[in-house]
């Protein structure tokens, strides 16, 4: 195809958008609504996932050492703990640290602890990578020489695993369903626009136009509609996200602020939202239109 013909067909695609402006607006509207729903679902899923991860990170195994274990030996045990599979992070609290913590908890009654400086055992606070195998990790930690006892919040781990699974499967499942529904609605809308112009397509065929020649303007039209819908929907999602985050940040609730720390910031996600919506728009608009035209090309 000559460059002149190509640019003519691209212009023809844009011209058709104006000539069929009601259908063009309907397509942009439907596509924007679908992308909005999908975009919100993606953001919710991503953020809930991050909150769950954050809460899971707070989930730790407390490994107390035998009272007779001294600092040097404790350091060696620390190395062994780090070597246990699935251990992510290890924080050491010496006997002195434990004593000081207890004393500060008792506040003005702290002097009651005088003379008991060495009775509090040193301990390690261990966070794990994978909560699902926390019991196995705990068993390995308990087996290390010098360890007196381990405390593992198995029930809490179970809850976290359940939430994480729900977010992973449920959230992305909803996103997938929304995306599928979007594709079906859009392809039906596109089919309507193509059906309205089936006569035009048959005329093109009778004067000897090749299928590629007929498809290209529709393809350009579909892609342009997709890009416009992608930009509008991602703009609304980004603006909405900005305002929701701003509102939540203004609540001055310690727990909300703590959880908000784990949320994705707009700066981290805006390009992901925009590029994702525009690429999806190009694919759904372009491919959807071109494939809807195919049925009417058999003349």
């Amino acid at each position: 195809m000559r460059l002149g013909s190509f640019s003519y067909l691209v212009k023809q695609g844009w011209k058709n958008m104006g000539a069929n402006r009601l259908m063009t607006l309907a397509c942009i509207g439907v596509l924007t609504a679908c992308f909005l729903l999908t975009g919100v679902a993606v953001l919710l899923t991503l953020n809930v996932g991050r909150v769950v991860d954050y809460l899971a990170d707070q989930n730790e195994i407390v490994v107390t050492l035998l009272p007779e274990v001294e600092e040097e030996q404790a350091a060696a045990i620390g190395e062994q703990i780090k070597g246990v599979p699935n251990v992510q992070d290890v924080v050491y609290e010496s006997k002195d640290d434990a004593f000081n913590q207890m004393q500060s908890m008792l506040a003005e009654y702290g002097n009651l602890l005088e003379g008991f400086e060495r009775i509090f055992p040193a301990r390690y606070l261990v966070t794990v990578q994978d909560l699902t195998i926390i019991e196995d990790t705990n068993a390995r930690l308990a087996g290390i020489a010098g360890v007196e006892k381990t405390y593992v919040p198995v029930d809490l781990a179970g809850v976290m695993i359940a939430i994480n699974n729900a977010v992973t499967y449920g959230g992305w499942g909803i996103v997938a369903i929304l995306a599928l529904v979007s594709v079906i609605i859009i392809s039906n809308t596109i089919r309507l626009t193509v059906f309205a112009r089936r006569k035009e397509i048959s005329i093109m065929k009778y004067v000897g136009a090749t299928n590629a020649f007929i498809r290209l303007p529709f393809f350009v039209e579909g892609m342009t509609v997709g890009i416009i819908a992608g930009l509008i929907s991602s703009g609304i999602v980004c603006a909405g996200y900005y305002f929701v985050m701003d509102f939540l940040n203004g609540m001055y609730n310690v727990w909300i602020l703590k959880i908000l720390d784990s949320f994705l910031t707009l700066g981290q996600v805006w390009y992901f939202i925009v590029i994702g919506a525009v690429v999806a728009g190009i694919l759904i608009g372009g491919v959807g239109t071109a494939s809807s035209v195919r049925k009417h090309l058999k003349v």
């Binding site: 004067v207 000897g208 020649f213």
Partner: peptide, 11 residues
């Protein structure tokens, strides 16, 4: 003109 354009005839 459309009938000519489909055959790639120059503008």
């Amino acid at each position: 003109a459309f009938a000519m354009r489909v055959t790639n005839i120059p503008e």
